[in-house]
Design a protein around this nucleic acid. Structure first.
Lengths: 219, 219
DNA sequence: ACCTGAACACCGTTCAAGT
DNA sequence: ACCTGAACACCGTTCAAGT
């Protein structure tokens, strides 16, 4: 059966009409595969089989397209959340899911996650997390405090150590410096990305333990 | 006394010959005042009273200019470190200084700090911090772990909450949503930037306390 | 050695125009 | 409503040329 198709985009996806979600998802793929600096309106348009200018019917400008990518990441994260568990367990799961997004989309994570959360989905996510703090027994002030500590740690970790293979300042300048930095040399093996996830869980549980002990001491 | 000066740059600084440091410092000012997207080679050149192409004698490309900005920030941070104190106190001071850079240069911090530390100054800083861990009694594995947790938290906090006035997802979408997000509403007052620094210190001390108790339990 | 001018291959975005 | 073509005002970067 030979389909009589007029114009096909460059990729092999069938030509379905554009929409914000489709555009944002394609943009995410582009960022993940080629890096943020390769995401241009023209290239994204080409990928979708359309001129760059067509995208401006769906997004006001490139900046709001980036917000769209953030939205896709948030959706993906919330869909990955399993149900069940105590509030503290679910909190842990929430931030592990955030971490997983960083692992799955290192390029996009770095370039998109430092934007302000300004859309409805972010609000829903935020309210959901706060419900867990509330269910765990924290008041508003405590919730704000631990939300910040946890998200700063999680997002910071995602930005700093995922993708880019390490803080690792050794190799590029080691040539002339030799053994001037013995402690750096000794610590380097423990900073391999293979250990990053263990460290993340360590830090996460450290913070959650503090939260728990703050709750217990208040009883 | 009327100085006979041939060509002056746009700003009022006297015309001294260029060098990497001068260029990077001017770039930092540009980023701080106008934002990273306004830092262009052409504009930076103009600010220095020179054509954009002249900058390529000092920096290979724009990317290495950004590394130069990071270098300036690192230098500033290290100069601000007071001497004295126990290893743990000095560790605290170190990360507070990092935090202070985020506060002093919010724009630059966000756009520059997620780069890999690849120069000598970063190595010196890193070795210095590791010396503190070592002096406190941590082994290489522990040092790596706590270095990561502390720097992820510090850098994450700097990126997420400094400058941009908050995670604050409420106002932009509150119009149609009204009271659908009661917990967000209650928590918002506690997320004002005025509280950010208190929260940072809270998290920092939380992590340092865990470090201390790990040390004590090993005795 | 240090800087310039012209040029190349791009950008994001606008606008009027097409269907 | 959805998309295109041409145009505007920019980019980073190269290269040969000036001093």
């Amino acid at each position: 059966m030979h389909t009589k198709s007029p114009k096909w985009p460059l990729n092999d996806a069938p030509r379905i009409p554009l929409d914000r979600d489709k555009i944002a998802r394609t943009a995410l793929i582009l960022v993940d595969t080629l890096g943020i600096e390769q995401l241009t309106m023209r290239r994204l348009g080409a990928e979708l089989g359309v001129e760059a200018m067509a995208l401006y019917h769906y997004f006001q400008n490139k900046d709001s397209l980036l917000d769209g990518i953030l939205d896709v990441l948030l959706e993906q994260m919330m869909q990955s959340l399993p149900p069940g568990g105590t509030p503290l367990e679910r909190l842990r799961t929430n931030f592990l899911a955030m971490r997983q997004i960083a692992i799955d989309h290192p390029q996009a994570f770095v370039s998109v996650v430092s934007r302000r959360f300004r859309n409805r989905r972010a609000l829903v996510f935020f309210e959901g997390v706060l419900r867990l703090f509330h269910a765990a027994g924290l008041n508003a002030e405590q919730s704000a405090r631990y939300y910040r500590v946890l998200s700063n740690f999680t997002l910071g970790g995602g930005i700093m150590e995922v993708g880019s293979d390490q803080v690792a300042p050794l190799s590029p300048v080691v040539g002339d410096d030799g053994d001037q930095y013995p402690l750096v040399r000794d610590v380097m093996p423990h900073l391999h990305s293979s250990q990053a996830d263990v460290t993340f869980r360590f830090g996460l549980d450290l913070i959650l333990a503090a939260l728990k002990s703050e709750l217990d001491s208040a009883t």
